[in-house]
């Protein structure tokens, strides 16, 4: 109880100190300082792959994400960190409209992928999700064989017509996910029979088999042991050569290891976005510093 009260006091102090911090930040756009709580650091880039402006997300009456502005550059790895319930997963799921599956969820604001508004009412989410793939917190291989798990995406999108082409896509996807050598002799056995780390890499292989442009990862390692985690992190580094990756993580070490930029969320607000090195060594915002030094979260 006492500790929580202290946290609250800290937050209040920091929130009152925050507008001046934003004003002093020359890299941040000037209109940010007008808001009660804006974003400090570098949320914007010149050649944005994904451009998000004023994103609000509501679950029924409750607002989960408040007016977030953020750009994601091509082939960059951006990690999103923050305490539990800070809206980072919800925000991530906006990028390929996965929140559509939740009845009471409502998204406001604009999200553009290569200049195309993905929340336009006439937009078909199917091709969007083919371009923006997603890897989930818990490995969720389909109850099918390893081969069929990877072949699923190319099949439903009609990416390949011949069986030999499909074989090739499956092999190259599994290779890129670093799983080929472990499973090449048992492609027909069920995907659910693999270990947790292998399942997660299978899910990544399944995602890249569709050749998306962006991969969203929602705490991809939270259910895995350290060795499996290390493998996935290596994989993310390799994948960033070809894909734009946004990753939500609870592990600050992981964010520091894999990402180019880091975004810190707090209570539904995007508090700070900066180069990962800067966030973890010299953050602009007091809240970020409090979080990464372990004072709360």
């Amino acid at each position: 109880m006492i500790k929580m009260a202290e946290d609250v006091k800290d937050e209040q102090k920091m929130q009152s100190a925050e507008p001046s911090a934003a004003e002093n930040d020359s890299a941040g756009p000037q209109d940010m300082s007008a808001k009660i709580q804006g974003t400090v650091g570098r949320p914007f880039v010149d050649d944005a792959k994904i451009k998000m402006r004023g994103v609000n997300v509501f679950y029924g009456e409750k607002q989960a994400v408040f007016a977030v502005d953020l750009d994601i550059k091509e082939n960059e790895v951006i990690s999103m960190i923050g305490p539990s319930g800070c809206g980072k997963s919800t925000f991530l799921r906006c990028i390929n409209r996965m929140n559509d599956t939740i009845d009471i969820c409502r998204v406001e604001g604009s999200i553009q992928l290569d200049g195309m508004d993905i929340y336009e009412s006439k937009l078909d989410v199917v091709p969007l999700r083919a371009r923006v793939g997603m890897v989930f917190q818990k490995p969720n291989p389909f109850p099918k064989s390893i081969y069929d798990n990877v072949a699923y995406g190319p099949k439903i999108h009609g990416l390949v017509s011949r069986k030999s082409d499909l074989d090739e896509v499956v092999e190259s996807s599994l290779r890129r996910a670093g799983l080929w050598d472990e499973v090449k002799d048992r492609l027909d056995s069920p995907g659910t029979g693999l270990s947790g780390g292998q399942q997660q890499r299978l899910c990544i292989a399944r995602t890249i088999a569709v050749s998306p442009e962006v991969i969203l990862m929602d705490e991809p390692c939270s259910a895995l042991d350290p060795i499996a985690t290390a493998k996935i992190e290596e994989l993310i580094a390799e994948l960033s050569e070809n894909f734009t990756i946004a990753i939500v993580t609870h592990s600050m070490q992981q964010a520091a290891r894999v990402s180019h930029r880091t975004a810190y969320f707090h209570l539904g607000n995007l508090v700070e976005v900066n180069e990962t090195d800067k966030v973890f060594t010299n953050p602009d915002h007091d809240l970020t510093e409090a979080y990464i030094t372990g004072r709360f979260g």
Partner: peptide, 23 residues
């Protein structure tokens, strides 16, 4: 999570049902 996985790959609702949920 299975439905999400299939939807995240860009399946339509009926594809999710036919190929993931029903099996």
């Amino acid at each position: 999570s299975l439905r999400d996985g299939a939807l995240g790959l860009g399946s339509t609702r009926s594809e999710v049902i036919k190929q993931v949920v029903l099996p």
